[in-house]
Design a protein around this nucleic acid. Structure first.
Lengths: 335, 335
DNA sequence: GTGAAAGCGCTAACAC
DNA sequence: GTGTTAGCGCTTTCAC
C-alpha cells in the first residue's frame, strides 16, 4: 500500500506524469476533459502531491514552511505568540515548525539547524544569550530571519520588541508619584535582555527623581514563585525596608503576592506578560504587553521578507499599556 | 550566494559526492585523512545537508518530522501538551510541525493535508467533531496517527484520554456526600467529547443517589467567562436554586467564581485542565488532569509506532487526581 | 494541449 | 576506501 505517485496517477488516467503535474498544481493549458480524467484518477488512488519533492525541484517557490523558535512553548506568553504566528502562516498557506530553547544556546543551535536542514523559508526566533553567527550562512543562502521579544546581538535582522525600558520607568515613576522613595526591584535572570532593560528603566526613574540606587533593594535571578516570595521576606527584614515593589515578570509578581499584605501592605506595580492582573486580588497596577501583537508583527515582517523585500532591517518597538488598578497607590500605615 | 551542495563540497575536497555523503552522515569506511579533508571543506563552505532531499531518497528513514494538531495552541492546556510532545520529539531527533484547528473540521483537514504533503512520519491529533476518513489513505501510506485528549470516531488508532466520566462522577459524588441535592452542571459545547463525558459522569452520580436530573440546573454551550457568569446568575433566580455547582472546564470555573459568594455562598467543584485552583480564592476543590502526561504518553505511543510497532491500537486512559481544598464542602446558610 | 528528457540534492547498490 | 550509476517524486524546458 505504498503512497501513489504522479506516475501511478498518470498510468491510471492514460496520460503523462507531466500532465498530472499540471492538473494537480492547477496550471492552465490542459484540456478540461483530460483534467477531469486526471482528477478522477487522483481521487480513485487517493493521490496527494509530495511537496518535499516538489520544492526540491522548484527552487523559486520555497518550502512554504517557517520555523518558530521560542524560549518555552509551555509559557502562555510564547504560546499566544506562537498561535498568532501560526494564524498568519496559515493564511498564507505556510506551515510552522516550532521549537523551544529553554534559553540554552546549545539547544537553540540544534533546533535551528534541524529547521534549516529542512529548508525553511524563514525563521522567527526569540534569541538566547548566545551568539548567532551560525545564522549567517543560512541567511546568505536565502533563509529569512526575524527576531522577536529580544534582539540578537550582532545580527542585522528585523526585530520586534516592546518598550521595556520606558515602560518600567513609567511604572516606577508611578510609584514615586505616590510618594514612595524606598522602591525595591525584583527581577529574573539579568542576562535576559528584557530583564536588563526593565532594570534599566527602574534606575532611570530613580535617577530622574534624584534618588540614589540602594543595592539592598535590588534582587535579580529570581527564577521561581518561592524564590520571589522569599526575596520579599528578606527585604522586609531590612532596617529600612521598601514601601513599594516593582516586579519584572508574572512569575515574580505571583510569588510576591503571597506576602504582600503581611505584616504591612506594600505598593506594587508589575511587568505583565499576560492579561493576568485582572484575576488577582488586590487589583494589580501593571505594565501590560501583547504577545499576539508581537507574534503577528514578526510574522508579517517575515512574510514580506520571504516575498522579496530586501530593504534595510527594521526595528519595531510595540507600545505597552500602563494599567492603573490601585495596587500602586497603596501607602503603608507608617509610610 | 546559493547554498552549497555536496557537489560543491566534493569539488573543494577533491573527492566524490558519495564520499562527502558518507562523511556528513557519519558512516564508517572512510579514511580518517579523507574525512578530515571533507570536514574542512564542509566548514569552509558552511555546508549543511539538505534533509528534504535526503529523505526523498531514503524511504526507510522517514523525514524525522511529526505533526501536532491541537484545538488551540494558545490554550495553556494544549501549550503544555505541545511542549511535552516537542521534548519527546527533540530527544529522538525529530522536529514538530504544529497547527490549531479551532475545532473546525475544515481547518483540521487543511492542516493535516499540509502536514502529510510534507511527508510527516506521524501525527498526534486532538480530533474535531468531524469525520476522519481522510486519514485512511495517509495511514495506508505509512503515516502513523495517535489521538490525544479525545478519540476520533471510527478511527482505529492509539488514543490517550483521561477518565473524564469517572472523574466527573467522583466530583459530583463529593458534593452529594456533603448533603447537596440541588447540583447544577455548567458545561461547554456538548458536541466536544470531553464535555459530553463529564456531563455523563454528572448524571451517573445523580442516578447512583437516586436523584432525578433537573434540566433547569443544566447549562451547556457556555463558551466564555461572561456566559458562565450570567448562567450562574440565572440559576440563582430559580424558585429552587442550586446549592452546589459542577463546572466542566477552567473557563467556566473562572466565570462562575465572580458570583460565587453573592448573595449566598455556593459549593463548587471544577474540572481543571491546569494547576489553576492553587492560585484562586476560595481554595478550589478540583478534578486535576495532567496535559504534560497526555502529550508525553501520546508521543511515546507515536514513536513506538514509527519505530515499527504494528500491534493492535491501544487506548490509554490516564487517571486524574481529585484535589479537595474546601470549596466542595460549603453549605448555604439556609441549606 | 501534451509529452520526453534532464535534473533538483541526495543516497542505494554496485563496481573497482 | 572510493567512485559510478541510477533514481527518489517532482517540475523545467523544449519539442511536437
Amino acid at each position: 500500500m505504498k503512497r501513489p505517485t504522479m506516475k501511478d496517477v498518470a498510468r491510471a488516467a492514460g496520460v503523462s506524469p507531466m500532465t498530472v503535474s499540471r492538473v494537480v498544481s492547477g496550471e492552465a493549458g490542459v484540456a478540461p476533459e483530460t483534467a477531469a480524467r486526471v482528477g478522477q484518477a487522483v481521487r480513485k488512488l487517493g493521490y496527494q502531491r509530495n511537496d518535499n519533492a516538489r520544492s526540491l525541484r522548484q527552487k523559486n517557490l520555497g518550502t512554504s514552511t517557517i520555523g518558530l523558535v521560542v524560549d518555552d512553548l509551555a509559557n502562555p506568553f510564547y504560546a499566544l505568540m506562537a498561535r498568532s504566528v501560526e494564524d498568519e502562516a496559515h493564511r498564507r498557506g505556510h506551515v510552522v515548525l516550532v521549537g523551544s530553547t529553554n534559553d540554552e544556546p546549545q539547544r537553540e543551535r540544534e533546533v535551528i539547524a534541524a529547521f534549516t536542514a529542512r529548508q525553511v523559508d524563514g525563521l522567527i526566533i526569540v534569541p538566547t544569550i548566545g551568539g548567532h553567527g551560525f545564522l549567517k550562512r543560512p541567511m546568505a543562502g536565502g533563509t529569512q530571519v526575524v527576531c522577536v521579544d529580544r534582539p540578537a546581538r550582532g545580527l542585522a535582522v528585523d526585530t520586534v520588541t516592546v518598550d521595556n525600558r520606558a515602560a518600567a520607568g513609567r511604572a516606577v515613576t508611578h510609584l514615586l508619584g505616590h510618594g514612595h522613595t524606598r522602591i525595591a526591584y525584583l527581577g529574573d535572570r539579568f542576562d535576559i535582555w528584557t530583564q536588563a532593560e526593565r532594570y534599566a528603566g527602574y534606575l532611570d526613574a530613580l535617577a530622574a527623581h534624584g534618588i540614589p540606587e540602594d543595592p539592598a533593594l535590588v534582587r535579580h535571578e529570581l527564577r521561581s514563585h518561592p524564590q520571589a516570595r522569599d526575596a520579599l521576606a528578606v527585604l522586609r527584614t531590612l532596617p529600612d525596608p521598601p514601601t513599594a515593589l516593582f516586579t519584572s515578570n508574572d512569575l515574580i509578581t505571583l510569588g510576591v503576592l503571597d506576602g504582600l499584605d503581611h505584616p504591612a501592605p506594600l505598593a506594587l506595580v508589575g511587568f505583565d506578560d499576560l492579561p493576568l492582573g485582572e484575576r488577582l486580588t488586590p487589583p494589580l497596577t501593571v505594565v501590560s504587553q501583547d504577545p499576539v501583537a508581537l507574534g503577528g508583527t514578526a510574522a508579517n515582517l517575515l512574510f514580506s521578507r520571504i516575498a522579496g523585500d530586501r530593504s534595510a532591517p527594521r526595528s519595531v518597538v510595540l507600545l505597552t499599556r500602563f494599567v492603573v488598578r490601585g495596587s500602586g497607590a497603596m501607602r503603608t500605615a507608617g509610610g
